[in-house]
Simulated assay, not measured.
Amino acid sequence: MNTLIDISAGTYRIDPARSVCRLVATHAFGLHPVTGTMAVSGGTVTVAEDPERSIASAELDAASFTTDDPRRDRDIRGRRFLNTADHPEIGFRSTRCRRVADGWQLIGVLAVRGGTCEVVLDLSPAEAAGDGFRLVARCAVDRVAAGVGAGRPVIGRTVRVELDIHAVPVRARTGHAMAG
């Protein structure tokens, strides 16, 4: 399915109230996975007339990381892992968009803890959602390449990430100049 062509060309704002990032990390020895969430604090999606020229950005609130274990959450948000005191935001900026056999991919740069790495997001087909659209993007992140090297002997390198994004059109601003 052609995910992007089904969305009208234009610029859309990611709605933080209806968007979320889900993460799954595994134990290095194959024990149960750890699932967490992180708030999406903002971003934009610009759908071009030529879908391959579309771009996107997203920001995550690193301090919002949460799982079912408050102690683990404090550790992950702390200096050894995300270091949210010094790096409160995780960012993504696309560099290109490409059609693949089963849909679309968005390639870009992920910024974590002051470092960067390339990631490839697989996009699900967009769905109409009230005043905009919903899109799910999935990728695997090598957390060590992304700058989160703590926990190497215990935590697997790959973190599966799923962004569940709701985006609404950016309305053109209208206004009147004030007479001076």
Rank of each mutant, 00 (worst) to 15 (best):
Ile5Asp: 12
Asp6Tyr: 06
Asp15Lys: 00
Asp15Pro: 01
Ala17Ser: 13
Ser19Asp: 03
His32Ser: 15
Thr35Ala: 13
Thr35Leu: 10
Val40Ser: 08
Ser41Tyr: 04
Gly42Glu: 08
Gly43Asp: 04
Thr46Tyr: 01
Ala48Glu: 12
Ala48Val: 02
Pro51Trp: 07
Arg53Cys: 09
Ser54Val: 03
Ile55Asn: 06
Ser57Leu: 02
Ser57Asp: 13
Ala62His: 09
Ala62Tyr: 04
Ala63Arg: 09
Ser64Pro: 00
Asp69Cys: 07
Asp69Trp: 11
Ile76Leu: 04
Arg79Asp: 11
Leu82Ile: 00
Thr84Met: 04
Ala85Met: 08
Asp86Ile: 02
Pro88Tyr: 10
Glu89Gln: 14
Arg93Gly: 08
Thr95Met: 05
Asp102Ser: 13
Gly108Met: 04
Gly108Ser: 03
Val109Ser: 14
Ala111His: 11
Val112Glu: 07
Val112Thr: 05
Gly115Val: 05
Gly115Asn: 15
Thr116Arg: 13
Val120Cys: 11
Leu121Asp: 01
Leu123Trp: 04
Ser124Thr: 08
Pro125Asp: 15
Glu127His: 03
Asp131Trp: 00
Arg138Val: 13
Arg138Phe: 01
Cys139Ile: 01
Ala140Gln: 12
Ala140Leu: 11
Arg143Gly: 00
Val144Ala: 08
Gly149Ala: 15
Val154Arg: 14
Ile155Tyr: 03
Gly156Glu: 08
Arg157Lys: 11
Arg157Met: 06
Arg157Ala: 14
Arg160Pro: 00
His166Ile: 08
Arg171Thr: 13
Gly175Pro: 00
Met178Ala: 15
Ala179Pro: 09
Ala179Gly: 06
Ala179His: 10
